[in-house]
Structure formats: C-alpha cells, structure tokens
Simulated scan of single mutants.
Amino acid sequence: MRYLLCSLIVAVTALAVPASAQQSKRFGPYELHYAVVNTTFLDPQVAAAYGIVRGDDRAILNLALREHLPDGSDVARAMQLKGSSWDLLQKSTELEFQEVSEPPAIYYIAPFDFLNEEWRHFEIHFRAENSDETQTFKFKQQVYEELKK
C-alpha cells in the first residue's frame, strides 16, 4: 500500500510539474523536493489507508530530502521537520507531517484545507537525520479545486 501511495504521488507530481520546472531547492549537499497535490488525485483506498481525507478543497504537501554524496550519487534522508501554512489573510495552520517510508524513498506528507484559487504560503523547518543544522524553506503556491467534467 505504501508503494502505491509513493508511486501515485510521484506520478501526479510528474504530470503536474514539467521536467524542466522540477520543484526542489538545494541546501548545501541536501536537495529538498516538494509538491502540493490535490487529494482528489489519490485513490480512495490509498487515502483511507493513510488517514487522508479526500475533497475538492483539500491537498497534501509532499516533501522528500536527498543528500548528494561526494561520489556523485544521492541518497534519501529522513528528517525532523515542522511547518506551517497560511493564506493572504494570515490565517495560519500548523502542518502535521506523516512519514511514508518505502526504501529507498522517504516521503513526508501533510494535509491542509484551501479555498479555490487561493495563494498558500508555506514555511518549513527541517534537519536531515545526519546533520546538526536546521534549514528553513519558504514558498508560496496557488491551489485550485479539481475541474469537474
């Protein structure tokens, strides 16, 4: 089931973001990958298995951390993190992250509610499992409800 969630998130992210516009940011040897995915893209059984409530006004923030090693390879890293999200009116929500581990991948997902066409701001504080340094990452993204056919 975990593999299905990881695969689905990767597939949805690949469809939503062109390869040339991969959403990631480097922090020294670490690269934080991030994506916001509407919960309606998740299979109902997969969402239920992870306690994710699906809805037109619900999304998940998906994070994954990779460490680039001196030999040119990279490896997934677990991390400690906390974060929040807020709207233009400064209504803030603390994000509650759930770790999804499907070796060699490690993902962190946090659900949140939104209004259609709303700009959401995110602030994430994270520390890789083998690091003493906490990094801060901020971004904003406009979110949309899924179009009905």
Rank of each mutant, 00 (worst) to 15 (best):
I106T: 14
F114E: 00
E129S: 11
D56W: 12
Y3V: 11
A105L: 14
Q135L: 00
L63P: 04
P44V: 02
I106F: 05
F27V: 02
I9K: 03
S24P: 02
A59P: 02
I60H: 01
G28V: 00
S20C: 06
G83E: 08
E94W: 06
H68Q: 12
H125D: 13
T40R: 14
N116K: 03
N116G: 05
K148D: 03
V36N: 06
V12P: 01
M79C: 02
L8K: 13
F27C: 03
F114V: 09
L61C: 07
V46P: 03
P104N: 09
Q23L: 09
Y3T: 13
P104E: 08
Q90K: 15
Q80K: 12
F41Y: 15
I124M: 10
R77I: 01
N38R: 07
G72V: 01
I52R: 03
L63S: 05
Q23Y: 04
V37G: 02
E117T: 13
D43N: 13
R2N: 15
S7D: 15
Q23R: 14
K149P: 15
Y3I: 10
V17W: 02
Q98D: 10
P44D: 07
S73K: 09
Q135P: 00
Q142H: 00
A21V: 01
Y50W: 13
A16V: 00
F137G: 02
R58M: 03
W119Y: 10
L32W: 06
A128V: 04
Y108P: 03
P44S: 05
A48D: 11
Y144V: 01
R77L: 07
Q141R: 14
A21C: 06
T93A: 09
Q90N: 15
C6P: 00
F126Y: 07
L69H: 06
S24T: 09
V37Q: 02
M1N: 12
T134Y: 09
A49Y: 08
I60D: 03
S85H: 10
A11I: 03
R2H: 09
S131P: 08
F112T: 08
E67Q: 15
V46G: 02
Q98P: 05
V75S: 13
K25C: 09
A19I: 06
A47I: 04
R120V: 14
L65P: 09
A11L: 11
Q135W: 05
A76S: 13
E67H: 10
L88E: 15
I106P: 05
V75Q: 15
G83F: 06
V36I: 11
L4T: 11
K149L: 15
